[in-house]
Design a protein around this nucleic acid. Sequence first.
DNA 1: TTCGTACACCGTACGTCGTACGGTGTACTA
DNA 2: TAGTACACCGTACGACGTACGGTGTACGAA
Lengths: 216, 216
Amino acid sequence: MPDAGLSKQRVVAEAIRLADREGVAGLSMRRLAGTLGAGAMSLYHYVASKEELLDAMIDAVFDEIELPAEGTDWQSALRQRAVSVREALARHPWANGLMESRTSPGPANLRHHEAVTACLRRAGFSALMSTHANWLLDSYVYGFALQAAGLPFDTAAELAEVTEDVYLPQLPVDEFPYLNESAAALIAAGFDPAEEFLFGLDLVLAALEPLRTTSA
Amino acid sequence: MPDAGLSKQRVVAEAIRLADREGVAGLSMRRLAGTLGAGAMSLYHYVASKEELLDAMIDAVFDEIELPAEGTDWQSALRQRAVSVREALARHPWANGLMESRTSPGPANLRHHEAVTACLRRAGFSALMSTHANWLLDSYVYGFALQAAGLPFDTAAELAEVTEDVYLPQLPVDEFPYLNESAAALIAAGFDPAEEFLFGLDLVLAALEPLRTTSA
DNA sequence: TTCGTACACCGTACGTCGTACGGTGTACTA
DNA sequence: TAGTACACCGTACGACGTACGGTGTACGAA
């Protein structure tokens, strides 16, 4: 319970820790103040409102993400960045759900968009094609994280357990033959979110390759 | 203000209308009951809790989505379904944010997964590859909808206005040269979410094509 | 006709939320 | 020593989800 002076940084950092531990629903100004050893209203000297706090939390998450490296080829650079985004969203599952409501991007977010766009342009994508590629890549990354956040298991062992105990009983074989087959295949093969992520990511990156206009 | 008898259907339908109009944050049991001409506690005869109501709302949204057609080739069928999902999520932007917290899929959701998996299997994808394809496609669709939900504009004209009045003033040209270029290109080309969606979708579908094992 | 029961509905109350408002103490400058 | 600025907080208000214990009407059985 450290209480050596508050600051916006400390407030935001503790809010993220709290949200990681208890989910966004468990993040209240009173509870947050409690873990900081302060009164609820003290927080309002550092954030104008809870909305602003949430914005700051999101941007802090963006700040954890690696920017695409400048020296390497575009695919490696963007692949590394996408992996880094996924890891950050896996660490902070609540961040995904917040993105829908939060409309104005923070500075770290902007920095990232700029860096990714720069990478694409330098790789020879046109300005318009860079926009398309950006949408495609971000859609995949955020969508994957969103789906992964909804999964009630983290390891392959838990997957097998949950599938057998919860899912399969709800899936009569005659009504859902394919889902049953899928579930079996999935358990047999094991399932690692990080690996699953790479499958789609590499496929998308490869599909973008021919769209570069090498002339530019 | 029709009040000819409540029912779970009516409660859920009105909840969706309310959420569409005011966002999830504006959906409270009291307000919902109000628009139904009922007392707040009456709703609890049809839903066990607000959580259950939200689950039911999500599943009702899934019920609006077209299943993949069985007669046509797999790409057309899944393309049409993906478009239908995007449209549904554009009609109900709140649905996306809810998916993170909602862990157990409803019946309509299951029906969709089964139908899509069936389509992939019949097209010659292996059971494991179908799972990969499912993750990839759903990630793209949900992620796209999530990004689109965060946009503060709906038409190309609004885009131009918002960009010039809000975004560009925050983006000094020397710090964000590429974002400025992108913004200009985007305004010049116009922007239609439905079109942008098709770009990535068709690219992903094409990239999946060679992964079919024609023998199966 | 009367009664018992079931059902649909709701009034009130509790604890929690975000936060407006108006403090209070300490630190520092003049 | 007085004045001012800052960091912090106690209290209160309206709204939230919902537990609890009603109340009225409909209807089958006697």
